[in-house]
Amino acid sequence: MSALAGLAFAGLTGCAQLPLGEPAASFGNIEKAGRSGTAPVAVGPFRLDPDAAPGIDAGLSVRSNVVVSPIQGSFAQYLRQTLITDLQAAGLYDPASPSEISGFLTDSTLDVPLDTGHASLGARFVVVRLGKAVYDKELKVSASWPSSFVGMEAIPSGVNQYGALYHTLVGKLLDDPDYQAANPK
């Protein structure tokens, strides 16, 4: 069943797992990566931050449905794949690079009430270059949007808003002057 059909079915029946779509490259992030002046990087492990609530990596409840990651059932892995996808499309992904980005998922929320929806995403990114940590920073992004009483409208809108935060967070990393200074060409 497609994700859209799954969302429609969930809106009618009430209880379903709703997977995010597979990460696709973001044109905006390809441009940001190209302008960043950074060297190609490898992407290491991404996992849940030890201080974060264990459940935020596995799924998010939305009006009796559960949003899940199609990448190993983990939002941390979804963030990792989103980063790889954007870097590959920009020509800045190199598994053999002396610089490696790893990450820790610190925040992942989605709330779709009857008035205004809210979502947030955060991660601590660590860049190690030639065995030395040169960047270690937590970045966060969030979104708010008008929500609907009708679940068949509100749920897909919320899932789309939440899913878009992954590219927004990667873009925030690529725009960060500290990241750019830590991984110059």
Rank of each mutant, 00 (worst) to 15 (best):
A52P: 06
D86R: 01
L130C: 06
D178W: 08
V68R: 09
G151E: 10
F104Q: 15
V141K: 00
A143T: 15
D107P: 01
K172G: 05
G28N: 07
V112Y: 01
A181L: 12
D49A: 15
P54W: 08
H167K: 03
Y135P: 02
A119I: 03
A10M: 10
R129M: 08
D57F: 04
L174D: 03
A119G: 11
S64T: 15
G163R: 12
V128Y: 00
G103W: 09
S157T: 13
N65M: 10
L139T: 01
G158F: 11
L83Y: 08
R35D: 10
P184Y: 04
A119D: 05
L12K: 14
D176K: 13
S64A: 13
D86L: 03
L110T: 09
T38V: 15
Q88S: 12
L110E: 09
V41F: 00
L130G: 12
F125T: 03
M152C: 08
Q161R: 13
T116S: 13
S148A: 11
A52E: 05
V68F: 06
L169G: 03
S142Q: 14
L92W: 01
F75P: 11
K140S: 05
V150L: 11
T38F: 07
L173D: 02
S2D: 14
G91L: 03
A53S: 15
V170Q: 05
S102E: 12
T38N: 06
M152W: 06
G117T: 03
A96N: 11
